[in-house]
Design a protein around this nucleic acid. Structure first.
Lengths: 179, 179
DNA sequence: TCGCTAAAGCAAGGGCGTTTGCTTTAGGGT
DNA sequence: ACCCTAAAGCAAACGCCCTTGCTTTAGCGA
């Protein structure tokens, strides 16, 4: 029997906050004791709940990234994708977003059980695309959206290239032009 | 005065090999002592030369990745890019290539001095593109090559999506079609 | 070939992350 | 309101990474 409410939730949120804040503060080597101190929590609690630092970082990254960049419903595929791409672009220009993406990638080592983050993202895209197809619009495949839009944005962050303003919209236009 | 030859070079190569082998063996938490043992080298030698584990991983990744996927000269831009993309695709399907890319990205945290890995890659691409332009071909910008070809390939590896056979060539065709 | 010195090896010590058994707190069902 | 127990706190001990002063080895120039 699990107890999701009350103190447990408070501790979980405090630890997640501490992770993001610590990484955002430029802490290169975040450790469990440092995170625990900032969260006002005992290190043992973190070890008991998450086991390893990697698990914690991954959990924090996935949890927080899921809350950002939802896909709106503007009535047209171009509008939906453009708004979404602008959201992603904005997140990728934000320091927290960059750090979370980096943490997500860094903890997705091949030997871990797969965390289907992109799959969840892809499912959302698929729904948007299906709706557009039902309206009779010409639609791309999900993989095309990832290749044309998401991959270039992620590449810029991971390799520390500048995220040019408006690049998200340009990438969407490029995708639609290729249809 | 530095002594690049002889023993130093042997140690450097042995350590680089040990890094790649250890990571390829599924070692999640590689440490300096473990690397040193596998390389048949004293841990102190590694600390003295590289300072930190991150520096070592970054150096190993950059050094080894630089040796792979050179851009050939086939006489046409399509031929050059296709051959290069095939090489990158092949490296991205190889376990060592995946690990090196992951190590490269993981150690490129924002607070380090930038390691212009992509810039070096971009310079090579620029030369190829300039040569094609001099022959009168229609050419893309370097950033377009990175966005259309490299980013999708890297995305697949970093998020553990399958690298479909022939995807490199398809991405190049898509790029050239967009011109 | 001989010496110089950069670089590798060696050993000991400190520091910190991690584990573990136990105690205390507080959420949720009765 | 009371009890039960999941979850957090506490403290001590372990282990291992990392540092540091010194010694030894072996490139490379004279």
């Amino acid at each position: 029997m699990t107890r999701p409410g009350g103190r447990s939730a408070r501790v979980r949120d405090a630890v997640h906050d501490a992770v993001v804040e610590l990484l955002a503060a430029g802490e290169t080597d975040a450790t469990v004791p440092k995170i625990a101190e900032r969260a006002g929590v005992n290190p043992t609690s973190i070890y008991r709940r998450w086991g390893t630092l990697d698990n914690l970082l991954l959990d924090a990254a996935v949890t927080r990234l899921r809350e950002t960049s939802p896909i709106p419903d503007t009535g047209s595929l171009r509008g939906d994708l453009t708004a979404w791409a602008n959201g992603v672009e904005h997140a990728m220009r934000d320091r927290h977003g960059q750090i979370l993406l980096r943490a997500l990638v860094a903890t997705m080592a091949p030997e871990r059980e797969p965390v289907e983050y992109l799959r969840a993202r892809g499912d959302d895209l698929q729904q948007t695309i299906d709706a557009a197809a039902a309206r009779g619009e010409a639609v791309p495949a999900v993989q095309d959206v990832l290749d044309f839009v998401l991959a270039p944005l992620y590449l810029r962050v991971l390799f520390r290239l500048p995220v040019e303003p408006g690049v998200g919209g340009e990438l969407v236009e490029r995708l639609l032009r290729a249809l």
